[in-house]
Design a protein around this nucleic acid. Sequence first.
DNA 1: ATCGATACTGATGGAAGAATCACTATTGAC
DNA 2: GTCAATAGTGATTCTTCCATCAGTATCGAT
Lengths: 220, 220
Amino acid sequence: MTTDGQDRGGNRAPNRMDRRKARTRAALVTAAQRLLAEQGGVDVSIHEITEAADVGFGTFYSHFTSKDELFDAALSLTLEEHGALLDSAVGDLKDPAEVFSASVRLTGRLRHTHPQMARIFVRTGMSYLTSQSGLAPQAMRDLQAAADSGRLDIDDPRTAVAMVGGALLGVLHLLETSPDLDVQRVTDQLACRLLCMFGMTRAEAQEIATRPLPSLSTPT
Amino acid sequence: MTTDGQDRGGNRAPNRMDRRKARTRAALVTAAQRLLAEQGGVDVSIHEITEAADVGFGTFYSHFTSKDELFDAALSLTLEEHGALLDSAVGDLKDPAEVFSASVRLTGRLRHTHPQMARIFVRTGMSYLTSQSGLAPQAMRDLQAAADSGRLDIDDPRTAVAMVGGALLGVLHLLETSPDLDVQRVTDQLACRLLCMFGMTRAEAQEIATRPLPSLSTPT
DNA sequence: ATCGATACTGATGGAAGAATCACTATTGAC
DNA sequence: GTCAATAGTGATTCTTCCATCAGTATCGAT
């Protein structure tokens, strides 16, 4: 969001001190990310965060002007990270429909692979479904590609993203509250059904949604 | 939730005083409902609510023990109201697939007909997708009926509800943030696509999702 | 008409946590 | 080696709002 311009234009010294500052900021964002995941969204105090970041309390205010600003940064980072991860995992696939399917399936599997990230998504993901930066544009790009190649039948990309994202969040929520469900089965089913939704036959959708899945490289 | 047993068993007097109490309680719940809709979910103070209900601050604690309890009551009421409304509007329809389609389309139209209710749904609906009371069981019942009659192809009802509910919430959120979109077009599209998702052909889905819609009788 | 019961009231207490600011420690320039 | 600049610190202040409770108004019963 506010990338906090460490503008290189005026300062010719991008050295040591700047690195220090950046590292502290990163520590804060990372800690916020973690606490946001572990404890539900709000009621995480600034004190808790600075504590977790192993940073003085006051330091917070030399990086952010409010708690919301930090939370926003943490969320954006999380979304970005996952987006990049998806892109790298899915980049090799040739079939746009499979790219879509794999993205959905991998994101659903977050429930297992990165439970905290999954919780963050469920908690706050909705607000970022229509955001101009982060995962949403990426998803829209993929859907558009699939539509252009004739693999999927999509009317309005924005609506499509809303439906897909919403359904994905709904399923993530379901998986979170019902530990008895088989994560893989359910998420593969979701992918299959979403393909059907966009005009694919049940049989073909099923085939695509059960192809072997590229693995996510380990994250931060 | 806690229906606060005004149990008629012991007290043979369900009269005046009780009515007063009930009215006050209703005023609180209604006010909470309204404020919850107008201002985003949290950060609505008890003081604001009692003010809006035109009731003394202290009164709150003779009806509820915490803010969450009130919020829960308000949410449940909202869900119940909408559920009853849907049932009465959709009860005449014979085709289970049309029942489903009409429910989705009518709920999407909340964006226009009851904007505050729509906001409430988007804000907090996710948590009630897996609830044991309210809209979720009702939706599951309808989906099950459609599956049993062979009109829709559904694997697991719970997953289906999560997907449908999530997609619906996603679209409601989209409509809220993008006022330029045509509510009717988008929600009909959603219904059509959801029917496709459950095995219906595009053509038939389109037909069902554009049939004339029963109107919601005016609410409270 | 009087009395007891209870729904209601709002001033007060008190906890939680956001924001401030005067101070120290560290860094890079000369 | 000294100095200026800036990152970092945490005790303190300020704000917000939940929760309490002693008191008042209203109601039904006798």
